[in-house]
Amino acid sequence: MTTERHRFVILLAEDEPADAHLVQVALSENHILADLQHVADGRDALEYLRREGPRFADAPRPDLILLDLNMPRMDGRQFLAAIKLEQNFKDIPVVVLTTSEVERDIVSSYHLGAAGYITKPVDVVQFIAAIRDLGEYWFELVRLPDNQKARP
Protein backbone atom coordinates (compact mmCIF):
# COMPACT_ATOMS: atom_id res chain seq x y z
CA MET A 1 0.00 0.00 0.00
CA THR A 2 1.12 3.44 -0.75
CA THR A 3 0.82 6.36 1.58
CA GLU A 4 0.66 8.80 -1.26
CA ARG A 5 -2.78 10.41 -1.39
CA HIS A 6 -4.37 12.15 -4.28
CA ARG A 7 -7.64 13.88 -4.52
CA PHE A 8 -10.52 11.40 -4.58
CA VAL A 9 -12.30 11.57 -7.94
CA ILE A 10 -16.02 10.83 -8.20
CA LEU A 11 -17.69 10.61 -11.58
CA LEU A 12 -21.38 11.43 -11.28
CA ALA A 13 -23.59 10.37 -14.17
CA GLU A 14 -26.88 12.19 -13.61
CA ASP A 15 -29.13 13.92 -16.11
CA GLU A 16 -31.14 15.89 -13.58
CA PRO A 17 -29.36 19.11 -12.45
CA ALA A 18 -31.42 19.25 -9.25
CA ASP A 19 -30.14 15.84 -8.20
CA ALA A 20 -26.59 16.60 -9.27
CA HIS A 21 -26.77 19.68 -7.13
CA LEU A 22 -28.00 17.61 -4.17
CA VAL A 23 -24.97 15.30 -4.52
CA GLN A 24 -22.74 18.35 -4.58
CA VAL A 25 -24.48 19.70 -1.44
CA ALA A 26 -24.21 16.34 0.31
CA LEU A 27 -20.49 16.11 -0.42
CA SER A 28 -19.76 19.60 0.78
CA GLU A 29 -21.96 19.23 3.87
CA ASN A 30 -19.93 16.15 4.72
CA HIS A 31 -16.69 17.99 4.05
CA ILE A 32 -15.69 15.38 1.55
CA LEU A 33 -13.05 16.98 -0.53
CA ALA A 34 -13.74 14.94 -3.57
CA ASP A 35 -13.27 16.08 -7.11
CA LEU A 36 -16.81 15.69 -8.47
CA GLN A 37 -16.93 15.23 -12.22
CA HIS A 38 -20.41 15.44 -13.66
CA VAL A 39 -21.71 13.99 -16.92
CA ALA A 40 -25.32 13.97 -18.08
CA ASP A 41 -25.79 10.42 -19.31
CA GLY A 42 -24.25 6.99 -19.78
CA ARG A 43 -22.73 7.76 -23.14
CA ASP A 44 -20.93 10.81 -21.81
CA ALA A 45 -19.78 8.72 -18.87
CA LEU A 46 -18.28 6.13 -21.23
CA GLU A 47 -16.61 8.85 -23.34
CA TYR A 48 -15.28 10.35 -20.13
CA LEU A 49 -13.70 7.06 -19.09
CA ARG A 50 -12.26 6.48 -22.55
CA ARG A 51 -11.11 10.11 -22.71
CA GLU A 52 -12.78 10.53 -26.05
CA GLY A 53 -13.14 13.97 -27.60
CA PRO A 54 -11.60 17.27 -26.52
CA ARG A 55 -13.98 17.59 -23.54
CA PHE A 56 -12.56 14.55 -21.80
CA ALA A 57 -8.99 14.58 -23.11
CA ASP A 58 -7.53 15.23 -19.66
CA ALA A 59 -10.29 13.65 -17.59
CA PRO A 60 -8.91 12.20 -14.34
CA ARG A 61 -9.65 8.53 -13.79
CA PRO A 62 -12.49 8.24 -11.22
CA ASP A 63 -12.08 6.31 -8.00
CA LEU A 64 -15.83 5.89 -7.75
CA ILE A 65 -18.75 6.26 -10.12
CA LEU A 66 -22.14 7.46 -8.86
CA LEU A 67 -24.62 6.31 -11.45
CA ASP A 68 -28.19 7.43 -11.91
CA LEU A 69 -30.37 4.79 -13.57
CA ASN A 70 -32.78 6.79 -15.67
CA MET A 71 -30.90 8.83 -18.18
CA PRO A 72 -31.39 9.63 -21.86
CA ARG A 73 -29.30 8.04 -24.64
CA MET A 74 -27.66 5.39 -22.46
CA ASP A 75 -29.20 4.56 -19.13
CA GLY A 76 -27.43 3.36 -16.00
CA ARG A 77 -28.09 -0.32 -16.65
CA GLN A 78 -26.64 -0.16 -20.16
CA PHE A 79 -23.64 1.79 -18.86
CA LEU A 80 -22.97 -0.82 -16.16
CA ALA A 81 -23.16 -3.63 -18.70
CA ALA A 82 -20.82 -1.71 -21.04
CA ILE A 83 -18.02 -0.97 -18.55
CA LYS A 84 -18.03 -4.54 -17.21
CA LEU A 85 -16.80 -5.52 -20.68
CA GLU A 86 -13.91 -3.04 -20.57
CA GLN A 87 -10.84 -4.42 -18.90
CA ASN A 88 -9.60 -0.94 -17.93
CA PHE A 89 -12.72 0.16 -16.16
CA LYS A 90 -14.45 -2.92 -14.86
CA ASP A 91 -12.76 -2.62 -11.47
CA ILE A 92 -13.93 0.93 -10.79
CA PRO A 93 -16.60 0.65 -8.09
CA VAL A 94 -20.01 1.86 -9.24
CA VAL A 95 -22.65 2.94 -6.74
CA VAL A 96 -26.10 3.09 -8.29
CA LEU A 97 -28.52 5.83 -7.33
CA THR A 98 -32.06 4.47 -7.43
CA THR A 99 -35.45 6.00 -6.88
CA SER A 100 -36.97 3.06 -5.05
CA GLU A 101 -36.04 -0.32 -3.60
CA VAL A 102 -38.24 -1.93 -6.27
CA GLU A 103 -35.95 -0.45 -8.90
CA ARG A 104 -32.94 -1.48 -6.86
CA ASP A 105 -34.08 -5.11 -6.65
CA ILE A 106 -34.81 -5.22 -10.34
CA VAL A 107 -31.41 -3.78 -11.30
CA SER A 108 -29.55 -6.03 -8.88
CA SER A 109 -31.38 -9.03 -10.30
CA TYR A 110 -29.52 -8.40 -13.58
CA HIS A 111 -26.25 -9.15 -11.74
CA LEU A 112 -24.48 -6.26 -13.39
CA GLY A 113 -21.97 -5.99 -10.58
CA ALA A 114 -22.86 -2.70 -8.88
CA ALA A 115 -20.71 -2.15 -5.81
CA GLY A 116 -23.60 -0.62 -3.90
CA TYR A 117 -26.89 1.18 -4.04
CA ILE A 118 -28.19 4.43 -2.61
CA THR A 119 -31.94 4.84 -2.76
CA LYS A 120 -32.39 8.57 -3.15
CA PRO A 121 -34.27 9.63 -0.04
CA VAL A 122 -36.74 12.47 0.14
CA ASP A 123 -34.90 13.85 3.12
CA VAL A 124 -31.80 15.93 2.34
CA VAL A 125 -30.39 15.04 5.74
CA GLN A 126 -30.79 11.37 4.99
CA PHE A 127 -29.16 11.83 1.64
CA ILE A 128 -26.23 13.63 3.20
CA ALA A 129 -25.94 10.77 5.69
CA ALA A 130 -26.00 8.22 2.91
CA ILE A 131 -23.25 10.00 1.00
CA ARG A 132 -21.26 10.29 4.22
CA ASP A 133 -21.52 6.56 4.83
CA LEU A 134 -20.51 5.97 1.26
CA GLY A 135 -17.56 8.32 1.57
CA GLU A 136 -16.30 6.73 4.74
CA TYR A 137 -16.57 3.29 3.28
CA TRP A 138 -14.87 3.99 -0.03
CA PHE A 139 -12.19 6.34 1.32
CA GLU A 140 -11.00 3.76 3.78
CA LEU A 141 -11.59 0.47 2.07
CA VAL A 142 -11.97 0.61 -1.60
CA ARG A 143 -9.62 3.29 -2.76
CA LEU A 144 -7.19 1.30 -4.79
CA PRO A 145 -3.44 1.56 -4.32
CA ASP A 146 -1.59 3.34 -7.13
CA ASN A 147 0.11 0.22 -8.41
CA GLN A 148 -3.26 -1.53 -8.85
CA LYS A 149 -4.83 1.48 -10.43
CA ALA A 150 -2.07 1.49 -13.02
CA ARG A 151 -2.95 -2.06 -13.98
CA PRO A 152 -4.26 -2.28 -17.54
Binding site: A18, L22, V124, V125
Partner: peptide, 20 residues
Protein backbone atom coordinates in the same frame (compact mmCIF):
# COMPACT_ATOMS: atom_id res chain seq x y z
CA UNK B 1 -45.36 5.56 -11.15
CA UNK B 2 -41.59 5.43 -11.23
CA UNK B 3 -40.90 8.63 -13.07
CA UNK B 4 -43.46 10.72 -11.26
CA UNK B 5 -41.69 9.92 -8.00
CA UNK B 6 -38.59 11.76 -9.08
CA UNK B 7 -39.94 15.30 -9.32
CA UNK B 8 -42.04 14.72 -6.17
CA UNK B 9 -38.95 13.68 -4.30
CA UNK B 10 -36.93 16.61 -5.59
CA UNK B 11 -39.70 19.01 -4.62
CA UNK B 12 -39.77 17.57 -1.12
CA UNK B 13 -35.98 17.69 -0.88
CA UNK B 14 -35.73 21.26 -2.01
CA UNK B 15 -38.65 22.40 0.17
CA UNK B 16 -36.74 20.98 3.09
CA UNK B 17 -33.48 22.50 1.93
CA UNK B 18 -35.22 25.84 1.61
CA UNK B 19 -36.49 25.46 5.18
CA UNK B 20 -32.91 24.81 6.31
Amino acid sequence: AHHLQEPARRMASYAERLTQ
